[in-house]
């Protein structure tokens, strides 16, 4: 019936126009930040930028880092944002190959540790974290076992059935830990990472899908069976902070760590390049950098930023492996596939 058709057509139009109202319209005084699900800053931190510059920030959240990089590449002809926050060194090369960034040298880049920086000016390091094996102090004491000190220890029968790692195909700390082992036991060596992993599995290493499963179902701290877990060097600080404790209940194995570095960049094709550049400068400035640790549990890239007390007290700064993004890109798929074969057999 006509009346029906019209009614429904109106309903449909109403939805579409509502949607249009919500969607972005080009505006000189705004800037759109595309980031991943783990992005967080204290309330008011971003308002500071608006007060300084008059530019409004819209934060667009994507899924995990891999999803976000894919989405940025898929929309590179007509970008959905002006700035991308949080592409890490394991995915960076793919983003650089797809040429999604417009070059920019941030104000304050000289305060960033050169170890974190990459050649060229496509992206700016913004934060970093170290993926390391963590241990449950109480559980190890009960087993009368000393904490492991190196990757080599983990294949020792003393640590049989004690370690849980994450699947590198589905978890970014899992991938980071795999790369730490590859850097230690490189391809082509007589005892390469594949031999190492076979020994790890022979020694009863358990694989979890992601960090949450590993930490919250397998780790002894949460009632699981494994007192060793692949996590972050900052995890003990978080345990103190979110457990209302004075002493960290977990420790960090300072060997065999991998440095995960996150970057920001201006997305090529933006109509608000100047706003985007100002936002990057702002994100690298000390107030924002000092706000990052307690909200994202990673460390500021800007070395002049002061760490919160809880981080200063309970964090070990391991000698983490840094790997060339290009090397990672060239081998990531093969490494994960070969690892998966070993894990499944």
């Amino acid at each position: 019936m006509n009346a029906w058709t019209i009614r429904f057509a109106f309903g449909f139009l109403a939805i579409v126009s509502l949607a249009a109202g919500c969607s972005a319209s080009p505006d000189e005084n705004k800037v759109v930040l595309l980031t991943h699900e783990s992005f967080a800053l204290s309330e008011g931190t971003l308002d500071e930028f608006t007060q300084q510059t008059g530019i409004e920030i819209t934060v667009q959240v994507s899924g995990d880092a891999g999803t976000m990089v894919n989405q940025a590449i898929l929309t590179k002809d007509n970008p959905i944002a002006d700035v991308l926050y949080g592409v890490d060194n394991t995915f960076l090369s793919r983003a650089l190959d797809a040429d999604i960034f417009a070059p920019y040298t941030a104000t304050g880049i000289e305060d960033v540790n050169p170890l974190l920086r990459i050649d060229g000016e496509a992206v700016t390091p913004i934060d970093f974290g170290d993926v390391c094996v963590n241990y449950d102090i109480e559980a190890l004491t009960m087993l009368d076992t000393p904490p492991p000190t190196s990757l080599e220890d983990l294949v020792d029968p003393l640590y049989k059935d004690l370690l849980v790692v994450e699947d590198p195909a589905t978890s970014s700390p899992g991938l980071a830990f795999l790369m730490a082992t590859i850097a230690t036991y490189p391809d082509g060596a007589e005892y390469d990472w594949k031999s190492y992993w076979r020994d790890l599995f022979d020694n009863g290493t358990v694989v979890a899908t992601d960090w949450s499963e590993a930490y919250y179902t397998r780790f002894t701290r949460s009632g699981g069976s494994q007192p060793l877990v692949v996590s972050y060097a900052s995890s003990p600080s978080a345990e103190v902070l979110f457990g209302d404790l004075t002493e960290a209940p977990t420790g960090v194995m300072a060997n065999g760590c991998f440095k995960q570095i996150e970057y920001v960049g201006v997305l090529r094709g933006t109509e608000r390049e100047s706003n985007a550049q100002q936002l990057i400068d702002f994100l690298l400035s000390v107030p924002v950098q000092e706000d990052i640790p307690l909200n994202m549990f990673v460390y500021p890239a800007n070395s002049t930023a002061t760490l919160p007390q809880v981080f200063a007290d309970h964090t070990t700064f391991p000698d983490a492996v840094v790997m060339e993004p290009g090397t990672i890109e060239a081998n990531r798929e093969r490494w994960i596939k070969e690892w998966t074969e070993i894990a499944r057999s």
């Binding site: 959240v61 949450s212 701290r221 996590s231 995890s235 978080a238 457990g243």
Partner: peptide, 28 residues
Amino acid sequence: TSFITRPDSPTIPIAIFRLLGRPGSSPF
């Protein structure tokens, strides 16, 4: 939801996901 790029407007499952992404007995 997690594959849609959207303005930050966390739902209950996303809030749970974020809690489960941090170490410590309180978040769990």
